[in-house]
Design a protein around this nucleic acid. Structure first.
Lengths: 241, 241
DNA sequence: GTAGCGATTTGATCTCGATCAAGACCAAAG
DNA sequence: CTTTGGTCTTGATCGAGATCAAATCGCTAC
C-alpha cells in the first residue's frame, strides 16, 4: 500500500486549473496553450471546510475536482447507515469517475481542504480529444485500483491491531516520501472515520491505538498529532511485506 | 455490485487475438487491419486447467491475457499464508496491469479456462500509439475499480450472512444478464476460494450456505450447482440497495 | 477561571465468527 | 466391492471485536 502510494505519487494527476499557483503539471501539461486557455474557463478554486460534501452516493455528478490541499474521503453507505471509506484522496489527486453520470459513492472533505473544481462536460470533451489527458487519468485509475486491492487484503484478512497499524503506516508513508525511521504528522481522520476506513468500531480503534502507545510504537498528542518512532516496526506489526 | 457488473459487461475488453473465433470486438476493433495483423503475431490461445498460475505476486510480468472461458481469480497473500481474493475475471475480461513491470498479485485459474495470451511488450507498444486501445483499457480499469470498492463495503461492513448472499448474488447476476427471478448456475469457486473472497473461513461459508438452503433462498446440488429461487430476496439478504 | 458539549478513552459484557475436532460425501483407484 | 484422499458439513468451544455504559479529555464560549 505504502510503497506504491509513494511511487505513484508523482504519476498522480495534479492541479487542473487557472489559479492553482504555478503547479501546472500533469493534466495541464498534456494540453496545448490553446486548450489550457479554453479549459480554464470552466475551473474554480474553492476552499471547503471539513465535512463538506462534493457529491453524494446516487447523485448526478456535474463536476470533477482536483485536491489541492487537505484530504477527501470516498465513502459508501448502506441503507441502515453502515458506512465504509473506500478511498482517501490527497493532493494532487483527481476526484471523479469519467464515463458515468451517477456517482456510486460520496466524496466528502475529511479535513479542511482546497480543491479545483472542473465542469464535467468540459473535461469530458477534452478527454475525448486529448489522448495524453486520458493517459494521465488512466494512470491514476490504475493506482487507485492497486490501493483498493491492497486495502481489500487489510479489510478481509487482517486483525484489528494490524489494521490500525496499516492505517498509521499508510498515513505516515504518505506524509514522508523519504521513508525516514521517525515520522510525525497530524491524523487527517477522526476515530469514527478511521473505524469506517478499517471496518472497525471507534472503541476498537481507540483500544488498539492505546496499546500501540503503551508499546511505544507511537506517541500521540492531542488525539491528533502522532509520532511514529520506528516505521520498520510499524510495518512489521501491520503485516506489510 | 451486480448492476454495474452487468451494465459494464459490454464495455469490457474482449478477446484480443488471432484465433479467437469471430469475437474480434473491443480492443481489436480499435485497430487497423494492419495493426491487427502485426499484433496477432504475438498472441497465443491456451487452455489452462483449474489452479494454473498465470503469474505470481512479486513476479516480473511478461504477458497479458484475455479470458475467453472460465474464471480467473486475482489473489493477494500475506507471508503467513493468509489470503484474499481481490478480483474475479470472467470472459471477456483483460488480465494485466499496464505500466508496471512487477505484479502485486497472483492471477490463477479458478476453473478450467481458456485465455488468449499477449506479449506484454507488443501490447504496450500498441497502447502507446493507439488511443482507442488505451481508452478501452481505461474503461475496464474503472469498472474494476468500481467493483473493488463495492467489495470493500462487503468486506468491511457486512455480516457473514450478507457476505455469502452478496457472493451468490454476484455470481448469479453475472451468469444472468437478464436478471430473472430464478437463476441456476455452477459455482466457479471452491468453499475455500469463497472464504478467501469474503474474508471468512470455509466453515462459516458452509454454515451460511446451509442456512440459506434451509430458508429455501437457494437450492444446492452436488455442492456446486446452485439455483437461486428469488433474486430479489437474495439481494435483500445481501444488503444490496 | 468554569460550564457545556462533542470526541475519545476505558470498562464490563455479549456475540458472531474463528478454531478445533469429527463425521459425511464423493470421486477415483485398487 | 473397499480403500483412499480431498472437499464439504456439522458440532462444541473459544476469543476477538462489538455493544452498552460511564468516565475523561479537549476545545470553545462565557
Amino acid at each position: 500500500m505504502d510503497k506504491r502510494l509513494n511511487d505513484g505519487q508523482d504519476l498522480r494527476v495534479p492541479a487542473i486549473c487557472r489559479a492553482c499557483d504555478a503547479r501546472h503539471r500533469g493534466i495541464c501539461g498534456a494540453m496545448t496553450a490553446e486548450q489550457l486557455a479554453e479549459f480554464s474557463r470552466f475551473t474554480t478554486r474553492k476552499k471547503i471546510g471539513a465535512g463538506t460534501e462534493l457529491h453524494g452516493q446516487g447523485e448526478r455528478v456535474i463536476s470533477y475536482a482536483n485536491v489541492l490541499r487537505g484530504v477527501v474521503k470516498l465513502t459508501k453507505v448502506m441503507q441502515d447507515g453502515r458506512q465504509q471509506i473506500v478511498g482517501l484522496q490527497f493532493a494532487p489527486d483527481f476526484i471523479g469517475r469519467p464515463f458515468a453520470s451517477e456517482s456510486t459513492l460520496t466524496a466528502e472533505a475529511a479535513t479542511d481542504a482546497e480543491i479545483c473544481a472542473v465542469s464535467k462536460g468540459a473535461l469530458d470533451r477534452m478527454v475525448a480529444t486529448a489522448p495524453d489527458l486520458e493517459h494521465k487519468l488512466y494512470h491514476q485509475a490504475l493506482l487507485e485500483l492497486d490501493e483498493a486491492r491492497d486495502w481489500m487484503l487489510t479489510l478481509g484478512r487482517k486483525t484489528a491491531r494490524e489494521k490500525v497499524a496499516s492505517f498509521l503506516h499508510l498515513i505516515a508513508a504518505h506524509y514522508d516520501p523519504e521513508c525516514n525511521e521517525t515520522v510525525a504528522f497530524d491524523l487527517p481522520l477522526s476515530r469514527q472515520d478511521i473505524g469506517d476506513f478499517l471496518g472497525l468500531t471507534i472503541e476498537t480503534v481507540s483500544r488498539q491505538m492505546t496499546k500501540l502507545r503503551q508499546e511505544e510504537v507511537i506517541i500521540v498528542e492531542n488525539n491528533r498529532h502522532v509520532i511514529v518512532s520506528d516505521m520498520e516496526r510499524l510495518a512489521r506489526i501491520a503485516g506489510i511485506d
